[in-house]
Each structure stands twice: as structure tokens, then as C-alpha cells.
Design a binder for these strands. Structure first.
Lengths: 253, 253
DNA sequence: CGTAACCTTGATTAAGATCAATTCTCGTGG
DNA sequence: CCACGAGAATTGATCTTAATCAAGGTTACG
């Protein structure tokens, strides 16, 4: 009795309780689908909830389908034999991940042994994701050019992002990469909020940030310290205050 | 008179002279298009010939369209302020490159200021490419799901390749990367030729190979030397003889 | 046969990883 | 409300890999 009540409470009290279909309407990939199609997807999809640090899938696992992030944050990462990690993407809510294997072998005999290209892990408490099974989705693509074009456009952006990521990793030192990251966050934040605000807030831990920038926490910490000594920025916990935007741009080069 | 003759000669004498349409039929991306569509593409496309070392486009140039490689070899690469270079892809004949900007901003207002994501250069003499102008091609996509699916599948593979590339660069040392490259070439060559052949031939210069593996020629040379001293392989010019496939696999780890 | 591009080898350096030791922060239970 | 403990972040000392710098050697091609 007590348990049932507890389970019901959030639904009852929370005015903005959301169905999967409401979520799907905010997903770029799905924006060309009609209500009926969204409902048919919703029917076959499965919600799953994870805690911080929980694995969503390993790159060794057989492919089941792709995911939509409902709440929380997910990291997509590779890991070496000796345990070092490198983060490829951070996926926020309303975004999809794990679509690549769906389409790799299109035309060829559908491979049953297809795998995820990387690992994924929830990096926030109460990260809710929805699994969209592979089989049910492919038919939709074959009958909907608009949907295809959405996917193409999403893939194209991701390709450009990875190009950029490789450029950063291979042609720039850690200081340039850190400055480049802060600059990008600064621009992103000021695009959203219109007016200029010189403080940005990290959404991820510094451990994860280090891994995303292709370095380790110790080096990231030292780099922040150096940028502070040069009066470029000031880091307090998850808050980064940009002191000199011009010097920051120059450093990112 | 003399000039006209010279220009005609190769066509006359060369029995396997090829029209653009013959080439297009071998391009995976185009494999769902009919003769009429191929012809309409052919009419608006432009052939260009480059020598080794010629730039095809810079990443700073406005986007014109994508390319098909007819003959020769093309490298797609990024370059740093101080001139260091990193190769992202090597594109061989019958393959396309530069499609990404076509689709990045689909749905949004068509940006006129869109740019190529990286630089490209011919790395063989007599590299012939065909430029497919952007505007003329987008209509085709909006009316052809099969074409879309081909593109999606091509992009998906490229995404997985870049994932893998980043994994190699960030989580493996040079020796592992070199061993991994040789192993991949070994497998590719033996898949094509059925029977096992332990010698592979480099298609690119060692300078370019170093850049593709995220290192420099000096380090590549030393790495080959070390792998030779360990009786794993033997390098003579562009020929690599695999001496111990098991040790090679182990080294690539 | 000569020159330029390509490749190799050696000596040195530097960036950043690793190892080790605190300190800080924050959620949890008493 | 405070104390505790675990994970996160910082700092310092040292080490390692691979880049840089410098000089020859090889190969291909006009």
C-alpha cells in the first residue's frame, strides 16, 4: 500500500507529466512523423531508467535499436585495454544515439551480428532513455523521404563534428582544446540567452570533460590554473567565468 | 590543328574510354538511379584533372558541390596554423567526397556561406574527378528514398570509421596504430584475393601514411624498423611482407 | 646523370601521462 | 544538524612517448 502510493504520487502531483509521444515531438529526427506514426513507435518502444554510472550498452553487445534521451545525460565513449577512456559525444535530452548500426549494411543481407560502435553510460542520476527497436523502424524509413532527410542531416552534422573533434585532438595542444571548448560553450550559451553573459556552467564532471578533450583530470586542472594565472578565466566548481574573451579566442587560435 | 589531334588521340586509341555515365554506374551512392537520372547528372557535372600535390578544395572555400573520383587518389585532410597536417580519409576511384555540406542545414534556410569540412588534395598524377553541383542534386533526393538510403548507409559507415579512427588516435600508441593499419590492409587484401597472400602494397607515400596514422615520417620509419627487428614484418619500399600474422594481431591488440 | 622528393637514422627536447599524496565537496545516516 | 566517508579535484615529482632538429642516404624521373 505504501509502495503503491509512492509510485503514484509523482504522476498525480506533477502537472507536466509527459507521455513518450510528447517527448517524441521534440526529437529532431522524428519531426516529420505524424501522430499515428509516433504512436506506433511509442507502442513498441521501451522506457528504461538508469543511475549515474550505469552502463546503457557496451560496444560488444548485439544491436537492439537506438535510444532517445528523455531526462539526464548520456556519454558515448571508447575504452582501451588498460582502462583509459575517451568520450566521443555527450547526449542531452531530446536527442538520439545509437542509430548508426541500423543503416550500415543497408541493401546487404541484414546482419544479425551487428554491434554498437561505442559504449554508453548514464552520467546523471535518473537518466531515462527510450529504446526504439531496430526492426520496427526501418519500414518507416523506406516510406518517408522527409524522415530520411532528417536522418541524413543529423548524420551530416555528426560527421562534421567528428571531423572537428579529430582536428582538435591531432593538431592542437591541451591548452588550445580547453580554450576552444570554453569558447564554444560561451558562444552556445550567449546564442540561447541573447544578451552577453560571461559565466558558463559545466554540465559534466571535470573527469568527463578531460576525457572529452582527450586528456586526464590532472592535466585539465593544471590547464585551468594556467588560464586563470593569465587572467583569461576563473573556475569555481562547475562555474567558469570568462574574464577576457579576446585572449580566450586568441588562445584557442 | 596539331593540338586538336593530340586532344583526340587518347579517345581514338584507347579502347576502354569511359563516359561519365559508365563511371557513375560504379558509384555506390548512385546505384539506385536510372539511366535518365544519371544522364541529367552527367550533363551538369564538370570533369577536372589534377596532378600530384594539386589542391582540389580548401576548407575555407565556399561549397560548390561534391566530387566523384574517376582515376587517381585523393586525400582529405586538416592542417594546423603551423603547417602540421592530419589526413582523415583517402578516397579511391568510384568513391565520393564532400557530400556533407549538402545536407547539414536541411530544412533550415539554405545557407549560401556553407564550407567544405576539410581540405582535399590529389596525391597521384592524373587524378580525375567530377564535380557534381549541389543545387542540381538535392531535387533527386527529395524524390528518391532509395538514393537517400544509399547516402544514409554511406554516412553511417563513415561515422563508424571516424569513431574507430578517434579510438585509435586517443587510446593507442603509434606501434599499435601501425600494426592495426597493416593488419587491416592484410585482411582487406586477402578478402579480395580469396587465398592468403602475406605481402601487401602501400597505395600511398609513407609521408601520407604517417599523417593518416597521426604521427610523422620519422616515427613511422622507426616503428617499421622495430616491427622488423621483432620479426613481425619486413618493409621494402612500398611492399610490406607480413612475417608473423599472430604477433601482428597481438601487437595491434 | 643530376636533381628533387622521399625516406631513414641519430641526438635532443618537450608535452603531457603517470604515480603519489592531499584537499575539497557533497550526499547519507546517526 | 553534524560527522563521516567516498568520490572528485588539485598539486607536486617524475617518467615516457613521440615530436623536433639535423644530417645523410635512396629512389624516381626528366
Amino acid at each position: 500500500m505504501r509502495l503503491t502510493l509512492l509510485r503514484l504520487l509523482p504522476v498525480r502531483l506533477n502537472g507536466d507529466y509527459m507521455t513518450d509521444i510528447d517527448l517524441f515531438k521534440k526529437v529532431y529526427l522524428f519531426s516529420s512523423l505524424n501522430e499515428a506514426e509516433l504512436e506506433s513507435i511509442s507502442k513498441i518502444s521501451r522506457s528504461r531508467t538508469f543511475n549515474k554510472g550505469d552502463i546503457i550498452f557496451f560496444d560488444t553487445e548485439p544491436y537492439l535499436g537506438f535510444y532517445v534521451v528523455k531526462t539526464g545525460l548520456v556519454k558515448i565513449y571508447k575504452i582501451s585495454n588498460d582502462g583509459r577512456e575517451h568520450i566521443l559525444h555527450i547526449i542531452a535530452s531530446d536527442n538520439t544515439f545509437g542509430e548508426v548500426p541500423l543503416f550500415e549494411n543497408f541493401g546487404e543481407s541484414p546482419k544479425e551480428d551487428s554491434r554498437y560502435p561505442a559504449n554508453s553510460m548514464a552520467i546523471e542520476e535518473n537518466t531515462q532513455v527510450i529504446l526504439i527497436p531496430a526492426r520496427a523502424f526501418t519500414d518507416l524509413f523506406e516510406n518517408n523521404v522527409k524522415l530520411c532527410l532528417k536522418l541524413i542531416s543529423g548524420f551530416a552534422r555528426r560527421l562534421r563534428y567528428l571531423n572537428h573533434h579529430i582536428e582538435e585532438l591531432t593538431l592542437k595542444d591541451v591548452t588550445k582544446r580547453v580554450a576552444g571548448f570554453v569558447l564554444a560553450e560561451f558562444n552556445k550559451s550567449n546564442k540561447q540567452n541573447k544578451k552577453t553573459k560571461s559565466e558558463i556552467t559545466l554540465q559534466i564532471s571535470k573527469n568527463d570533460l578531460a576525457s572529452l578533450l582527450g586528456t586526464i583530470p590532472e592535466t585539465l586542472s593544471r590547464t585551468f590554473k594556467k588560464l586563470n594565472e593569465d587572467n583569461i578565466l576563473e573556475v569555481t566548481g562547475k562555474a567558469i567565468l570568462v574574464l577576457d574573451i579576446n585572449k580566450l579566442k586568441e588562445t584557442a587560435s
